[in-house]
Design a protein around this nucleic acid. Structure first.
Lengths: 242, 242
DNA sequence: TGACAGGTTAATGTATACAACCTAGCGTCC
DNA sequence: GGACGCTAGGTTGTATACATTAACCTGTCA
């Protein structure tokens, strides 16, 4: 996130992808030298990337040293989405309580209009995804609090909580256009609640919005079990214990 | 957190202390070599510690490279406490909704009893702080979700959100024993709400509990302005802009 | 006198070498 | 035969050397 096109960035993206693709056995230890050779870089940036992935919850530290791939379940994804709704709900509530500068509300309207365009007629899926990301980034800003913004953005970018983990296959939903439209209705309702200074409603709407993502995910995994390995974050999901 | 008595740990604790004590000018760049010499270790563990402190929000990365001390305000501390209440509230709500194993509830009762003892008669402040930490650690576990537990613990340990940032001078409160007793009443009410499976009430109580910490902080800074430099997290607080 | 170009310095990012630790396997002793 | 200890191998944690890049200063030219 910090550096562009550095070895660290390569290590971070490469290792994260490998983990989410299920390239490693859960609970398996990750030897640093072998990994660094596999990724074509030295141990220094690799270790930095591993530290970051530990923060993200994809890896966990071993007491004796080193780290291993974390075991996570479908319920962990559900919980991550719930948490995202809670934190975004807080951003929305505080924004409503404290008020939002004109300029930011105008930006919000612009983003909503962009998403409307993406949904009009034939759905422009890429444009929707882009607009959706912009909306949630802005939502994190609306409370005017660096702390809230940081944490909301952070949790939204957690691999397990990231909408992009399944959004890219949302075309498999029974009526995916209807789902996106429903999400956009919630987007607009949130902004309206914030403008109306109704904190509780804004918070509830944000939570409801996250729950929609959860329902979509549950539907996808119920009807398309074969999809799991393709969906980052679901590759390691299993029903076994510990 | 991971390693004990390693150079990394020394770097993390040392640098964090220096920042919170206000040893650096806000927005000042931190040169790695000078810092590593000052802390008596090499750049490798120092850089790891700096990465961690960036995650915690005490430092921020500079586009061109390196990092500087973050500027934070009193409002940032308020927001961090608010966020802590929200996430702990979620842990409490989910625990109530999903139910908690007998063994964990028994542990909770044990901790509550320990805090009661600490408050009986002459207040044993250290024992209270220890029991309070145990309570909040357990609260993070009650939902039975590794994700919730991770994030609740993480946010609680953020320097700006940490109760220990001002708890150690809580003896300056007008009637600090009453304040601790009120907190303990809230502790017990939370556990009872969870046992009664009342999620909304449990969540509201956790938020209320965080708000008590906020009120204490506000009182302290209002009546003892000279205390600020001694209170970690307040050293860098200022009313100037950007 | 001001602005631009070139060089020099110092900083970070990266690689690698070194050291301490844990683990496992084998041999010996009880 | 089993258990304890020692040694060897490998892995991580740390230090340092190297390279690359950005900033700053200086000198010259317009």
């Amino acid at each position: 996130m910090a550096d562009r096109s550095t070895q660290f960035e390569k290590a971070l993206l490469g290792l994260r992808s490998l983990i989410l693709e299920g390239a490693f056995e859960p609970n398996s230890r990750l030897p640093e030298v072998a990994l660094s050779e596999r990724l074509g870089l030295s141990r220094t940036p690799l270790r930095r990337a591993m530290d970051r992935l530990i923060e993200e919850g994809l890896l966990e530290r071993i007491e004796t040293g080193g780290c291993r791939v974390a075991r996570f379940t479908f319920q962990d994804i559900i919980d991550s989405i719930e948490l995202r709704g809670v934190v975004e709900g807080t951003a929305a509530r505080l924004a409503a309580e404290r008020g939002v500068p004109e300029a930011l509300m105008a930006q919000a309207d612009g983003i909503l209009a962009r998403i409307d365009s993406a949904l009009a007629g034939e759905v422009d899926f890429d444009a929707y995804v882009e607009g959706n990301a912009a909306f949630h980034d802005l939502l994190a800003q609306l409370a005017g609090s660096p702390v809230i913004q940081r944490e909301a953005t952070r949790i939204r970018n957690l691999p397990l909580a990231s909408p992009s983990a399944f959004l890219h296959r949302q075309d498999l939903l029974p009526d995916f256009q209807a789902s996106l439209t429903r999400a956009q209705v919630q987007h607009r309702a949130m902004i309206e609640a914030i403008a109306a200074r109704e904190g509780s409603r804004a918070e509830a709407l944000a939570r409801e919005h996250a729950r929609l993502a959860r329902q979509n995910l549950e539907y996808l995994t119920r009807t398309e079990p074969g999809l799991a390995p393709q969906v980052p974050g679901l590759a390691l999901v299993s029903s076994e214990d510990t």
